[in-house]
């Protein structure tokens, strides 16, 4: 790990200017991903700017929804009764991620910004276009069990690891951002990007942008939401696939739905096509299967050393069916 300076500013605007004007500066929040990456030699900042004193912790009522301060710990979000009852998918997503200790450290803003767990990205001795542009993608032709089936490119097949971000994407959350040009908002669905030819960038945020809060909009549908994560270990493991879903039915007919997938793409995958396929249809396994398959028509599983990741297609389909069935029966 290379040496770096450390600043703990108390004024957000100054901090944003500091980072925005210094390409080697980066924000430090919970540190659970950044400190890991410093040790792995994935990133080499010259300056860490601590966000502890420039972001707030806490959840407030906001236009019928909730506003989650950027510094709010993951465990505190999941423990909040308003979140648990009005946005259960978000609480479930948070609780299905990491461990109790990590959830006590990781922040609301930091969680969606965590970077891929692709083992080649994390091993600085192997090629990786995300880590070292132009060096190649070692995952292609390598171990791809955890990799993408949707939206990947020849340059990168990594998946996004956050559970929380999948729930936020399904629940139409909005980010409050302070940038060098002042505050703005950004829908969570637009935060993450596909790798394309530039996998170095995970999100559309500009250098210096500081997430200050996450807004959960008022939506009764979110009360009937849940997050279903499928993983290899019973706990403390990243998703093979995950589904955040919300479902509203009237007389057995689906009237509204939200669906997002994790573990299958470079970003939390909002399944708009599947949502469309659900609307107006009877709430049953056939409908759910048709919807999942509609979303997965473009799926491109990867070959790989241990048999690749083609299992994710049927696994995700079956997980969608199980999750929606479970929601309907709730």
């Amino acid at each position: 790990m290379r040496p770096f300076d450390y600043l703990a500013p108390t004024d957000a605007a100054t901090a944003v200017r500091t980072v925005a004007t210094n390409p080697t500066a980066t924000y430090l929040a919970g540190g659970t991903n950044l400190v890991d990456h410093l040790k792995l030699g994935i990133t080499h900042p010259d300056l860490l700017v601590d966000t502890a004193a420039i972001t707030t912790a806490g959840i407030t009522d906001h236009h019928g929804g909730l506003l989650i301060g950027a510094a709010t710990r993951n465990s505190d979000i999941a423990a909040d009764h308003r979140v648990r009852t009005r946005y259960p998918a978000l609480a479930e997503a948070l609780l299905s991620g990491a461990s109790g200790q990590l959830r006590n450290m990781a922040t609301a803003a930091g969680n969606p910004l965590q970077r891929t767990r692709c083992p080649y990205f994390q091993d600085a001795t192997t090629p990786c276009n995300k880590r070292r542009p132009g060096s190649g993608c070692a995952a292609i032709g390598g171990h791809t069990r955890g990799h993408a089936i949707l939206g990947a490119s020849d340059h990168c097949v990594a998946t996004h690891p956050s559970d929380m971000a999948v729930a936020l994407t399904a629940l139409d959350a909005t980010l409050h951002i302070l940038g060098p040009d002042g505050p703005r908002t950004l829908p969570c669905t637009d935060l993450h990007r596909l790798p394309g030819t530039d996998p170095t960038r995970d999100t559309v945020l500009e250098h210096g942008d500081l997430i200050t809060a996450i807004e959960l909009p008022h939506n009764p549908l979110a009360r009937r939401s849940r997050y279903r994560k499928v993983r290899d270990r019973a706990s403390y493991a990243f998703a093979l696939v995950s589904v955040a879903a919300a479902l509203e039915t009237t007389d057995g007919i689906i009237t509204d739905a939200r669906l997002a997938f994790g573990g299958v793409a470079h970003k939390p995958w909002r399944a708009y096509r599947a949502e469309q396929a659900l609307l107006g249809q009877p709430a049953n396994d056939t409908t759910y299967r048709t919807a999942a398959e509609a979303e997965l028509t473009d799926a491109q599983p990867l070959n790989g050393l241990d048999g690749g990741n083609s299992f994710k297609v049927p696994l995700l389909t079956r997980t969608v069916i199980a999750t929606l069935r479970n929601l309907d029966q709730r």
Binding site: G142, A237, D306
Partner: peptide
């Protein structure tokens, strides 16, 4: 759980940490 994924192109095990090389957790 346990499998060390050797990548013969490089010659080493690529899942060389405890997040990717799973050993049983308490819940298992």
């Amino acid at each position: 759980h346990e499998t060390s994924s050797l990548d013969p192109r490089f010659g080493h095990v690529i899942n060389h940490d405890l997040a990717e090389y799973h050993i049983a957790s308490c819940a298992d």
